[in-house]
Nucleic acid binder design. Structure first.
Lengths: 199, 199
DNA sequence: TACAAACTACACAGACCTGTGTAGTTTGTG
DNA sequence: CACAAACTACACAGGTCTGTGTAGTTTGTA
């Protein structure tokens, strides 16, 4: 048996343990096609891993979905961290966040915010994926608040809340009309808000 | 046959033709539980109408979904129209839009923006429902632009675009964390934007 | 009363879904 | 080499989904 165990190609992919490959496949499929639209058979097949392994590693689809979002959250936060660290001027750091979102949502494969999409697809607010989604937004907001504080703004929390709203609005609108323009609008409003507080 | 054709209760509901009852059931179910999560059997059963009628009237689920959104679009636009008409002061009309959204998203049965949710659930941007969703947002924006123009703002289109962004951000955020607070944030930013242009 | 349109119940096709049970195979490590 | 952990293939249960085919019934109207 084991009909595909000979080729050298398999040796390369085989090195990555099953869970890793499953998460990669799930990430791509869930984001592009939707969570409900993709079955566990499709995920495991794409990962080149048996469905049994998926269930042994993740327990079920719900947890796989939550893991997919957890990983996406981690990566986005790390990316944002890197981007803002590379900018010296404190106020520019905040604008760099808008730059990061801007690059993301003009991409070919942009399909809206994965966390918002998950919330839209999953009505149950106690679903593990919903909780990850909520945490993600809180995380971004905290990052914004830290940057706002670093830039010396009064009431950095308030500014962060407002900037987050702009990012959310731009992301949702960009997803709706498949355009990068909403982010320019958001950025210009952000600039106006910041300037109004520059004293 | 016709096991439930005797009671007077049926006579009352029977009066409404099938398509109407189907749309009502679809509206409620699709919004609350999600489009993919609800099957045509469930819709027709809830409507008290045979599945065959659903297919004879709408051709298929896709068109039923599009109709569901078309009707929601119509009703929301009419509601917004009514709300803003009842306000005399031109500038207050714009704020009344925020008031309307505010009342909506603090409701018990709020489950996010039906159009954004549909876009999240349906990856195909050419799906009839996606086109309805896009048109809906354009319609709201046009309404905002008309109000902004009526209030005498320079560049009413630009202001409308910005206000729409705020509404979208507030709706998305409210759906994520199940709270009405984001709309207050959006409203206060809107006010700030308008005051900055009051000259 | 005749007739057409709208509706009904119901069975079915064919596909998909999540999840489990099982027996056997590969693989890394002591 | 021995052994445990991780993996495999595969069949299956029990459900769901969209959509169709059909024969018969109700209902409003001419």
């Amino acid at each position: 048996m084991m009909e595909q165990r000979a080729g050298g190609e398999k040796l390369a992919t085989r090195r990555r343990p099953g869970a890793e490959r499953l998460l990669e496949a799930a990430s791509d499929l869930f984001y592009r096609e939707g969570i409900r639209a993709v079955g566990v058979d499709t995920v495991s097949e794409r990962a080149g891993v048996s469905k049994r392994t998926l269930y042994n590693r993740f327990g079920g689809k719900d947890e796989l979905v939550a893991e997919y979002l957890r990983r996406r959250d981690e990566r986005w936060r790390a990316y944002l961290q890197g981007v803002t660290e590379r900018v010296a001027e404190p106020r520019e750091k905040l604008l760099a966040v808008f730059g990061a979102y801007g690059e993301w949502l003009v991409g070919e494969d942009f399909r809206g915010c994965a966390f918002a999409n998950a919330a839209a697809e999953i009505p149950d607010p106690n679903h593990p994926a919903r909780i990850v989604a909520q945490r993600h937004k809180e995380g971004v907001k905290k990052h914004l608040a830290a940057l706002a504080k670093g830039a010396g703004f009064d009431e950095p929390e308030t500014l962060a809340e407002r900037l987050l709203l702009l990012l959310e609005g731009a992301t949702a609108t960009a997803a709706m009309r498949r355009s990068g323009e909403p982010l320019d609008v958001a950025r210009s409003v952000a600039l106006e808000l910041m300037e109004a507080r520059s004293h």
